[in-house]
Amino acid sequence: MSATVHTLPNARQPSLDPVMALVSKDMQAVNSVILSRMQSDIPLIPELAGHLIAGGGKRMRPMLTLACARLLDYGGTRHHLLAAAVEFIHTATLLHDDVVDGSDLRRGKRTANIIWGNPASVLVGDFLFSRSFELMVEDGSLKVLRILSNASAVIAEGEVNQLTAQRQVSTSEDKYLDIIGSKTAALFAAACRIAAVVAERDEGVELALDSYGRNLGIAFQLVDDAIDYVSDAAQMGKDVGDDFRDGKVTLPVILAYARGSTEERRFWEDAMLGHRVSDDDLSHAKSLLQQHDAIADTLVRARLYARRAIDALAPFPAGQARSALVEAAEFAVARGY
């Protein structure tokens, strides 16, 4: 991949404020759907689901569904149910991820698995997946059902693929991109694409929005993987160095390992196997990443994917919706500065 970086348009610090303002009324309707559909006669289900759903997340994926619908001047309400379905899929995957990873923190709060235990977290995740499919069926579109159900399957494949790559420091960059393309970007892509379906646009529009969401999702995950080594717990909402201690072979590690000396490679092999996980080891890992420009080059790639996302919006008319979606892509990578 070329290292050429296009400067993203926008001199001020990008934020999600424009897209949040664009969809604020629609988001109220989506939140009502989320609140009503996570209810159950079993009190633990809404209690546990509510802990995560109300946990301070930006709800970026459902916002993308709503914003893309606005981009297409869709005037109906089908996207409210579907945006809620997207959020339920995302929340279910988070509950399952935290169990798999043994995470203690998410968005700065204790994870559900730490409070209620792994079995309850897995089962409530299953409940939310089921609710998402109920919402898809209510919409009545087989095409929407196909897009979102396929995304759910691809996310699960990505998580399994990541599990098989865990602690495998020889993981290739291509495999890493396959993993994040599945576990993160697939839902971004689907969230955007279904807006074209409900707006009854042609396949060209569907593919353009799919490309926007997919590239945005990859950029978003690349930045997440970079800031795991350079941010702090308050900013990330999770413990610093979690990926390092969990043996997750992300792009910064792949680059540093490929560029390292024999001794440095041995360090990474030991670290990813869980033999070098002290604070001093994390500090040494950070110094190696810095020395070999692994963080900087990960962010270069993130900016390239963000540019591809922005370019995918070129066929759409200029206006508030397109500007907000452009800035969402800018925001995704600005977090890495």
Rank of each mutant, 00 (worst) to 15 (best):
F129K: 14
Q235S: 12
A189K: 01
L145Y: 06
A219G: 08
R146C: 03
V169G: 06
A208H: 03
K175T: 13
L128D: 11
S141D: 06
A191I: 05
Y176W: 07
D225G: 07
K175E: 13
A226M: 03
D139M: 14
A185T: 00
A151V: 02
S130A: 09
V230M: 12
Q168F: 10
Y212N: 05
V197L: 12
R146I: 05
K143I: 15
R201K: 11
S132E: 02
V169A: 05
I180W: 01
F129D: 12
A199F: 09
Q166E: 14
A156D: 03
L128W: 00
E203P: 00
S149F: 07
A185W: 02
A234P: 05
K183L: 04
G217N: 02
V205M: 05
G217E: 04
D232I: 07
A199I: 15
D174F: 14
A191L: 03
I227G: 02
V198S: 09
G237H: 08
A165Q: 00
T184L: 05
L128K: 01
R201L: 15
Q162I: 13
E157C: 05
I218S: 01
D178M: 02
L209K: 08
Q168W: 09
D210Y: 10
V223K: 00
N150K: 10
G217P: 03
L207P: 00
Y176H: 06
V223C: 04
A191E: 05
D224Q: 01
Q235L: 15
R167C: 13
L128F: 04
E134W: 13
R146G: 11
N215V: 00
Q221H: 03
V160W: 07
G158L: 00
S130C: 15
E159G: 14
R167V: 10
S141A: 12
A190N: 08
I227Q: 14
M136Y: 07
A156H: 02
I180D: 02
A195Y: 11
L209E: 09
L207G: 07
D239I: 15
L207R: 13
L207K: 08
G140E: 10
L148V: 08
L216F: 06
R167P: 04
D210I: 08
R214K: 09
E134P: 02
A190E: 02
E138F: 05
M136D: 09
V169Q: 04
A233G: 06
D225W: 00
E206T: 04
V197I: 09
A153L: 10
L128C: 06
T171W: 09
A234T: 14
V137Q: 07
G140P: 06
R201G: 05
Y176Q: 07
